[in-house]
């Protein structure tokens, strides 16, 4: 579907344009999918997140993508009393984390979210947005992204995974999953007056 970004490995030390890859992927993917996927490219039709404070950086559709990805990546086992990514607030954390990120890097994340939502499903044979897929379908899309033949997409998957894991495993309610005793010092935010 897409033009290979790194079809031949460049020699050591040679520069690769940093911010062009996702743009290339998006443009290539969008062109390839043109005709059948125009509806997907809209970012309307997303409900505003309810029950949370106003989003600082993410748009409603980006918030929905992060939340959907987190639900599949973490797959919390509710039967054992482990909190879900929604309860921990993974998407809210990602929103806050991105506030102080350099604009160029933040833009990279936004492009990645757009790719996951609008283009990646097409690569797995779906003509619906990622957030509209069933859980097994979303897993299939994420697996394809993780093992993509395009180096940069695999890197994008890893970046998204890192964000989600930071958002989830920061919460002390998740420490029991790991048998982790947690920090020794109290966070000022947790100290009672």
């Amino acid at each position: 579907m897409d033009r290979p970004i790194n079809s031949a490995s460049p020699p050591p030390g040679i520069a690769i344009p940093r911010r062009k890859w996702l743009g290339s992927v998006l443009i290539g993917g969008a062109l390839a999918a043109l005709g059948g996927a125009v509806a997907l490219l809209r970012t309307t039709g997303y409900e505003s997140p309810s029950g949370i404070a106003v989003l600082r950086v993410l748009a409603a559709w980006q918030y929905a993508v992060v939340r959907a990805v987190a639900r599949r990546m973490v797959a919390a086992d509710r039967a054992e009393g482990v909190p879900s990514p929604d309860e921990v607030g993974v998407a809210e954390f990602v929103d806050a984390y991105l506030v102080e990120m350099r604009p160029a890097m933040r833009s990279d994340v936004f492009r990645l979210l757009r790719y996951v939502e609008q283009i990646a499903p097409i690569g797995s044979g779906y003509r619906r947005r990622f957030t509209e897929l069933s859980a097994p379908e979303q897993d299939e899309v994420l697996l394809a992204l993780e093992a993509s033949r395009f180096d940069q997409l695999r890197a994008g998957f890893q970046a998204l995974k890192s964000l989600v894991m930071m958002g989830y495993y920061r919460d002390s309610r998740t420490f029991s999953i790991l048998g982790y005793g947690g920090p020794f010092v109290l966070d000022p935010a947790e100290r009672t007056p």
């Binding site: 990546m73 086992d77 894991m165 999953i177 982790y180």
Partner: peptide, 22 residues
């Protein structure tokens, strides 16, 4: 935990199963 979760392979249930052996 965050570093370990980001570094261990995969995602979903298999990933959490590995983390349970942290």
């Amino acid at each position: 935990p965050i570093g370990a979760a980001a570094s261990l392979p995969g995602f979903g249930a298999a990933h959490m199963a590995l983390l349970r052996r942290y």
